[in-house]
Amino acid sequence: MSEHAAGCGCGCGEAARSLPVVDVGRPVGPTVIEMAGVAFAYGQQTVLHGVNLSVPQGDLACIVGPNGGGKTTLLRLMLGLLVPQRGEIRVFGKPPHEARRRIGYMPQHVHLDPLFPVTSLDVVLMGRLGGGGGLGLYSRADQQIACDALGEVGLADMAKRSFARLSGGQRQRVLIARALACQPEVLLLDEPTANLDISVEEQLYALLKELNRRLTIVLVSHDLGFVSKYVKTAICVNRTVHTHEMSRLTGDVIRNLYGREIRLVEHAGGGAEVRS
């Protein structure tokens, strides 16, 4: 892992270097997700290369970086939905597709059909699929797990409400509940706060922080400045990956980080390439 490396591009390397080298906050438990020398390309287009990272148990890590930098690709590699051309990925010490049942995944809700006739509880129950049996109705135990998951995200009274009629923030929470209904050990979330207003976003992060007491969480966000007070680790992605501990990044440093991040996005939008 290349911690605090210069030229990461997001400016966080320089920000981190100005700090006293004290590692607190980031958990040092057993490794949940590990990547070594991973490279991935869509056809001729290299999206990620030389990726090394490890996510320890109990971490709350945020994948940040410019658009098109490979954030979602990185998440999909962890899920085994994409297979890298080079390198190795291990989740709980196994190839990702073998560890899927221990992962709870929340996709971006924009790819779902907004007119689909399902209730919130129906959606959450999908998290119970694939556990043997499967003929006819869900078992009472599965129903209970789904109801508990809805309760955990604060939507117990919305169980019978149509998914289509929920607000954006409520839909995100239903999808988190669906991921929780899988009874996972690690949660992977793709832009959980996309298109939400600030107060709803705040609530959602408070929920994730609460869940982090028992779960390892990795999420994708477009906005490190905002999530920095909640997350323990920043995984900066721009063609390659650098990991930084967040616990000591406060005040001026955060502003610096955030400022650099913004400038980088403009820079990348102009067509320039950022290499490490």
Binding site: L79, L81, R100, R101, I103, Y105, P107, L112, D113, F116, V118, D122, V123, L125, M126, G127, L129, G130, G134, L135, G136, L137, Y138, R178, C182
Partner: peptide
């Protein structure tokens, strides 16, 4: 169509998630 209702609904609603659940 009715016996495998749960599977069909899951695959129709969110194919990717269904795949991740091992369907």
């Amino acid at each position: 169509g009715l016996l495998f209702y749960n599977q069909f609904v899951a695959v129709c609603f969110d194919e990717e998630f269904a795949r991740l659940r091992g369907l």
